[in-house]
Amino acid sequence: MSTTDDVQDRIEEVSNATGSGPHLVTLAVPPEQPIDAALERIEEEHARTEYIDADETSERVTEALERVRRIVSDYEETPENGLVVYAGIVDAETIDYVFDDLPSPVAGERYERSNEFETEPLDVTTDESTYGLLVVEHGKAILGRFSDGDVEQIESLRSDDTEDNPTSGELGDREQTHREFFERVAERAMVEFLGEAADEQRRSNANPGQSDIDPVDGLFVGGSSVTASEFLDGDYLDHRLRNRIVTDAFAVGDASRDGLEQLADKARDHLEDARREDVREHLDEFLGELETGDEAVSGREAVEEALEYEGVATTLASGTLSAEELRDYERRTVAQGGEFVVVPNDIDGGDELRDGLGALLRFPID
């Protein structure tokens, strides 16, 4: 087992390594991925590289992939929290770094080839939540989800009664058509975002061969401002999905892939604003308690002592700390039921965290 200092040093070395071309290889294997699948991916990349005209770059890529393949082949199964391997030629020497004892799970599969190693798989601050996306307009809708920035389109829906001119026909008939389509969209959202349907036959038809769908952590709805609001105000969604709606409907182009991407962009901005506001509130509470009370401490030594006494309610850590330090303090804080907050470098008041650390306490520690 690597020591904390050793892991920290290796992360810093990975961050500083630079190649003379795009031949440094990063492989991230999440814990749920079989090690054989990761090895197969490397074999495919190796075979693909052999078809490239022989030049210095392809030769260096091949050498890096062979080093990664040898490393991965030594594992009979994927480590508990996944595996991250780096290999390539730096300063005329083939180097590698292996992280197989990470304190938190690798977020997802990743293969990168660049003149720098990709250190994001080692970052503990990634949001692992999954959010549902629903863009709805009269007669058309599209469903998707995103997690850690990746947008997945699930399905597009279209009303069977959609006409070339949606305003034609009797008003009552049009309204009935809209209501029926909204009900269909809501049922589909329940299938995709809650893993349930009105009956097993519909579930079977909607999701062939898929029996389990994890609920989303939140739901973002978009469309034209009028239509999306009409859908939400009409109370079509299951109450459990309504409780997961993160904010008011966003205005986006239409129910297409572009509209889904627009909604995801607005959702990311909203989540980032909310995250910074949450950090701001924690930091303000910390600064107020630090000035007037005795249930806040600042500095590495004081935070370490509070963690030893299991008296930490919230640890605040500066984003300037290394990824390994952040992981370590997050693990120890969460283990005692506390909350861990990373304070961005550009937030006013963050410099009050001596040594980049502070804590709100459950009780005073003498």
Results as ranks from 00 to 15, higher is better:
residue 5 D to N: 15
residue 5 D to W: 03
residue 7 V to Y: 01
residue 13 E to N: 05
residue 24 L to T: 00
residue 33 Q to R: 07
residue 34 P to Y: 05
residue 36 D to M: 06
residue 43 E to S: 06
residue 43 E to R: 12
residue 49 T to A: 12
residue 49 T to G: 07
residue 51 Y to A: 14
residue 56 E to Q: 11
residue 62 T to D: 08
residue 69 R to V: 05
residue 76 E to W: 07
residue 84 V to F: 03
residue 85 V to F: 02
residue 85 V to K: 01
residue 87 A to T: 05
residue 92 A to P: 03
residue 96 D to H: 07
residue 101 D to C: 01
residue 102 L to W: 07
residue 111 Y to S: 07
residue 113 R to T: 09
residue 123 D to E: 10
residue 123 D to H: 12
residue 127 D to N: 08
residue 128 E to Y: 11
residue 131 Y to G: 08
residue 141 A to Y: 08
residue 147 S to Q: 14
residue 153 Q to R: 11
residue 157 L to W: 10
residue 159 S to M: 07
residue 166 P to I: 01
residue 168 S to Q: 05
residue 169 G to P: 15
residue 171 L to R: 13
residue 179 R to D: 14
residue 180 E to W: 06
residue 180 E to F: 04
residue 182 F to K: 03
residue 183 E to T: 12
residue 186 A to I: 05
residue 188 R to L: 12
residue 189 A to P: 00
residue 201 Q to R: 15
residue 203 R to H: 06
residue 203 R to D: 00
residue 204 S to R: 09
residue 208 P to V: 10
residue 208 P to M: 13
residue 210 Q to Y: 11
residue 216 V to I: 13
residue 218 G to K: 12
residue 221 V to A: 01
residue 224 S to D: 05
residue 226 V to C: 09
residue 227 T to Q: 09
residue 230 E to G: 04
residue 244 R to Q: 13
residue 246 V to S: 06
residue 248 D to N: 09
residue 254 D to E: 14
residue 257 R to T: 06
residue 264 A to R: 00
residue 264 A to Q: 03
residue 278 D to C: 08
residue 278 D to Q: 14
residue 283 L to G: 00
residue 284 D to A: 07
residue 288 G to I: 08
residue 291 E to F: 15
residue 297 V to N: 00
residue 300 R to I: 06
residue 304 E to Y: 09
residue 305 E to P: 02
residue 307 L to N: 10
residue 307 L to K: 04
residue 309 Y to Q: 14
residue 310 E to G: 09
residue 311 G to W: 08
residue 311 G to Q: 12
residue 312 V to N: 02
residue 313 A to Q: 11
residue 314 T to N: 01
residue 316 L to P: 00
residue 321 L to I: 09
residue 323 A to R: 13
residue 336 Q to H: 13
residue 349 G to V: 04
residue 351 D to C: 02
residue 354 R to Y: 10
residue 360 L to S: 02
residue 360 L to T: 02
residue 360 L to D: 03
residue 362 R to E: 05
residue 364 P to T: 12
residue 366 D to A: 15
